[in-house]
Design a protein around this nucleic acid. Sequence first.
DNA 1: CTGAAAGCGCTTACAG
DNA 2: CTGAAAGCGCTTACAG
Lengths: 334, 334
Amino acid sequence: MAVTMNDVARAAGVSLKTVSNVLNDYEFIRPATKQRVQDAIAELGYEANLTARSLRSGKTRMLGLVLSDLSAPYYAELASRLMKAAAQRGYRVLVEQSDAVGDAELNALQGPFRQLTDGLLFTPLVMDADAIAGRLGKKPLVMLGEHILDPRFDLVTMKNGEAAAALTSHLVAGGRRRIAVLGARADESAGSAGLRLNGYRSALDKAGIPFDPALVAPCEWRRDEGAAAVAGLLDRGIDFDAVFGLNDAIALGAMHELLIRGIKVPEQVAVAGFDDIDEARFASPSLTTVSPGMAEIAERSIALLIDRIEGRETAGEGVQVESGFQLQIRESAP
Amino acid sequence: MAVTMNDVARAAGVSLKTVSNVLNDYEFIRPATKQRVQDAIAELGYEANLTARSLRSGKTRMLGLVLSDLSAPYYAELASRLMKAAAQRGYRVLVEQSDAVGDAELNALQGPFRQLTDGLLFTPLVMDADAIAGRLGKKPLVMLGEHILDPRFDLVTMKNGEAAAALTSHLVAGGRRRIAVLGARADESAGSAGLRLNGYRSALDKAGIPFDPALVAPCEWRRDEGAAAVAGLLDRGIDFDAVFGLNDAIALGAMHELLIRGIKVPEQVAVAGFDDIDEARFASPSLTTVSPGMAEIAERSIALLIDRIEGRETAGEGVQVESGFQLQIRESAP
DNA sequence: CTGAAAGCGCTTACAG
DNA sequence: CTGAAAGCGCTTACAG
């Protein structure tokens, strides 16, 4: 049997409530009493039972993180940072993978997962704003790194459009005119893919370069899909002098396929990505990309969610946070 | 207020216990009763309170996963698979990052983290067998992908030594004689690093190639460290014709550094890694490595841990599982 | 097959 | 500042 608060109370000669007060940093405790309780805790090696605390208080001090796939490098790095930011504030992060399946997202939103957490960081890939708003419940939810700009939701994201435009302009400044875009999603205009695609188009507009839909290839945001997408363009005989992967994984997959086929990067085709995952620096050639300020995203989304949970943030409408970005110009598109 | 079992019992006209029986798939319930309860559950939208269940039963249906850093690609892929394997069996995985810090490992082993989980998958980098055995507690613990081969512990791992030897023999068969090893750890002879290093040495022995300690460079298992380690060898003027990174991240970092310096891979220096992370296939040149059967490791470690938790595995001594491996010969060391 | 009672270990009003 | 009581929502013996 584990040591309980009752044991501590008995050992210290006080009531249960007094022990509870000490544990919860209640202000008005006589120093001597407090000391006696703390001594008893130390002596008995008492540790609070978190489950009992949760049952009574209704709080778990866990945050839910819903994303499609933890093995994607961007999400892995993000999850790692989020966990550290949460730990500093006394919270843990419980991760749920949705595999970009709608049912899984729905489950994370209202199933048992929700019960286990005091609030959610949510990266929806399938559900739209109305579907989410309809299942919202009363626990706080912060949209993460995603697209749904809706006054009903808190959102921590980056300047997807601006950053994509800046990257595209950089490619144009390097003399590229036919820039293929990999990773667009047909069904999604407001999502990250859509926002980045819009940024690309606006940069082309600004440069007076006509938009060619033949240069836009949809694919999932993985290395193998990026490779397949660029292979498709080549096999269809489509001419291009640059590739913009809507994330780094796509770009790295595409770059691999180009090199395999003997196409020189960046001499014949420049390649650029998005996310600045660690891998981008060490690719050969190293990958030009956009750094989305992941540290800031992690820090601010955790802070916002916990502020909501603990009632410090009380804005009726959603709070929108946009982190800054930085171009990382490297060998693949100098 | 959420719907409780009491509400369901009242609606169905049965006692609490009967509702509990239905929820827990107790065999002997009259079908009509069961149906009435299930109808009431559906009608009221009842969902069991997991916290209350945990408090009473002492089970959380969560598994703890302790590793150094979730953003390392191997761990990210492994965690993703473990979560899926656990989910299939009705368990969740709660991840704790130790940053390879001893205190953090100790905390995960006996702090509140332990309370939240029914069992642990543990990848210790600092603590040794005796330290762990001393803090073991009564909840099951499975050593994961690591070195501690001790009859007191359950262990799921791979054939580190054999695989490293096979890879080294492959390099030797390709004509390499001076094979640098990156990622050795001075303090660790039994760990993964030590086992892989031993495999390397035994393969050299077999080939009649003398072991040269100057070719062994210690470093952390990250890309930047692999790059720095190979840079160190080059700057010290040490001659080598192959690099064996003790994991893929090291090898990829080293390969990047070689290419930056105009050294041709594999013509001048062959490069090989260990883990077969997705990134290895898409590197340029693609990376020769060892596939450790991660799917098998994930599946078997989850199965073993849950068998322990649920009392199906009752061996008094530790159960040792070694997954198979496969050489992945690619461009960096054909 | 089903019920009434006890209790897991805390926190939360409510008194004083 | 501190105490006695109630109760969070379940499961677990124990009866019958």
